[in-house]
């Protein structure tokens, strides 16, 4: 074991925490988005069951947030190694990448949940709101995509 100041035994801890926080916080945001917009869909579908197909879109977008976290967690997990081949610097990079996509996904999931809940309830009464709801959902989704871009950019350092 060639452990040194650059390759301490706790180096991989940061990478593991980065991979874990990427998927944990993204899944937290996706779960909140699914649950919050799911209550809106359930309340709306009682009166307008023909709009189910349109109103599933917030749930799909919340699921995509979790896929962002999954991609970064898989990328980081693929690069983890023994402490001798894993410098502390790379651990910090991976922790930063995981936190970037995790908290961006959490924020995007919250936004998708609240917008989806209000959006599907409003679409039931005014169908022309649908385009506006989709646009707002896309802008919420893009917040998670920014986190993913930063995470992938950090990962290539």
């Amino acid at each position: 074991m060639a452990l040194s100041e650059e390759n301490p035994v706790y180096g991989p801890f940061f990478g593991v925490m980065g991979a874990a926080s990427a998927i944990i916080f993204s899944a937290l945001g996706a779960a909140y988005g699914t649950a919050k917009s799911g209550t809106g869909i359930a309340a709306m579908s009682v009166m307008r069951p023909e709009l189910i197909m349109k109103s599933i879109i917030p749930v799909v977008m919340a699921g995509i947030i979790a896929i962002y976290g999954l991609v970064v967690a898989v990328l980081i997990s693929g690069n983890l190694a023994e402490p001798a081949e894993y410098p502390l610097y790379r651990g910090f990079i991976h922790l930063g990448a995981g936190l970037a996509v995790g908290f961006s996904g959490l924020a995007a999931g919250f936004a998708i949940g609240i917008v989806g809940d209000a959006g599907v309830r409003g679409t039931a009464q005014q169908p022309r709101l649908f385009v506006g709801m989709i646009l707002i959902l896309i802008f919420a989704e893009v917040l998670g995509l920014y986190g993913l871009i930063v995470a992938i950019y950090l990962y290539t350092k």
Partner: peptide, 28 residues
């Protein structure tokens, strides 16, 4: 290869999402 595969999968994901939105919009 990891990074380019991740980018390719994200692009495929958004194409699939766009297809679903178009389908939901036209069907509804």
């Amino acid at each position: 290869s990891n990074v380019w595969s991740a980018i390719a999968s994200i692009i495929v994901l958004h194409i699939a999402l766009g297809m679903y939105i178009m389908r939901a919009y036209s069907d509804a």
